[in-house]
Computed example of a mutant assay.
Amino acid sequence: MVMIDSGERVVVVTGAAAGIGAAVAAALASDAGAISLWDRDPRVHDVAREISAGTKASVTAVEVDVTDRSAVADAFDKLVAEHGPADVVVHAAGIMLAGTGLDTTPEDWERSLAVNATGTMHVTQRAANDMVAAGGGAIVVVSSNAASTPRVGMAAYCASKAAATAFTRALALQVAPHGVRVNLVSPGSTDTPMLRGMFADGDQPLDEASHTALLDGDPTAYRLGIPLRRIAAPADIAAAVRFLVSDDARHITLHDLRVDGGATLDM
């Protein structure tokens, strides 16, 4: 395995315009020589400017739709031309469209799979090929504890995250002999615009009733509460990602790290 000095690493973070992706980008910038933030949301440029003010790393923002294979390829090509191949890729782009198994629309099903599953394949496949050619690297996919634990009202989300998780682990097995580590971080309820949007305006904090409902769970929906009695902050997920891409995790691959306060009892 090629060991890269952390201060010289070339890093890519997808889904970096908000939430977990933005927190991951901020956490990894101090360990990077160059970091590229990708998102289809133009607010990714604002995040890049904020991070640039606090780091010596070269920080760039690229508007990329991960469902567009050509756009992903173009973004990687540009990265390689400017900085060389990525040493670290964190794929945090994703969406959550509510709907039960009985009423999920074909459109929501297809969109969920396109972003959460096919987008994962587009990004990690290209990243892994570049890393195999380079002789090493680290990839982390931000999945969800819903990939393995069914959730009422989240059928397409569960299915798409399960597909992303399965693909990621299969890829990890394939590239491990080449010194490329591929791991998953699977959050539970995390205080992001995506979670807030399930209850109200995604830009507003959770109200007390919604916060309590998440902590307590809902037996009628077969949903456990959170044993640690707190909702994760995006920084909690970013810290787990930062560990997995570091040299401290050099003997860890194919791992799915749950960061959910015990909400799935490590099932």
Rank of each mutant, 00 (worst) to 15 (best):
residue 39 D to Q: 08
residue 96 M to P: 02
residue 152 V to R: 15
residue 249 A to L: 01
residue 40 R to D: 00
residue 87 D to N: 08
residue 39 D to I: 03
residue 152 V to A: 15
residue 162 A to D: 03
residue 74 D to A: 14
residue 81 A to Q: 14
residue 17 A to N: 05
residue 214 L to A: 07
residue 68 D to I: 04
residue 140 V to Y: 00
residue 116 N to G: 08
residue 156 A to T: 11
residue 129 N to G: 14
residue 188 G to W: 00
residue 50 E to F: 10
residue 22 A to E: 14
residue 95 I to Y: 03
residue 66 V to M: 02
residue 267 M to V: 15
residue 252 I to C: 09
residue 84 G to K: 01
residue 70 S to N: 12
residue 43 R to P: 08
residue 248 D to R: 06
residue 153 G to P: 08
residue 135 G to D: 12
residue 135 G to W: 09
residue 114 A to V: 11
residue 212 T to N: 14
residue 236 D to K: 04
residue 105 T to V: 08
residue 210 S to I: 07
residue 133 A to P: 02
residue 89 V to L: 02
residue 149 T to R: 10
residue 215 L to P: 10
residue 203 D to A: 15
residue 147 A to V: 04
residue 29 A to V: 07
residue 173 L to Y: 10
residue 149 T to S: 05
residue 100 T to Y: 09
residue 94 G to F: 01
residue 211 H to L: 12
residue 5 D to I: 08
residue 43 R to Y: 08
residue 121 M to N: 02
residue 128 A to P: 01
residue 71 A to M: 10
residue 188 G to P: 05
residue 132 V to Q: 03
residue 106 P to S: 08
residue 55 T to Q: 07
residue 199 F to Y: 15
residue 232 A to P: 09
residue 203 D to R: 13
residue 71 A to I: 02
residue 95 I to E: 05
residue 246 S to G: 11
residue 264 T to N: 06
residue 161 K to T: 06
residue 217 G to Y: 04
residue 192 T to F: 00
residue 30 S to N: 11
residue 80 V to H: 04
residue 229 R to K: 15
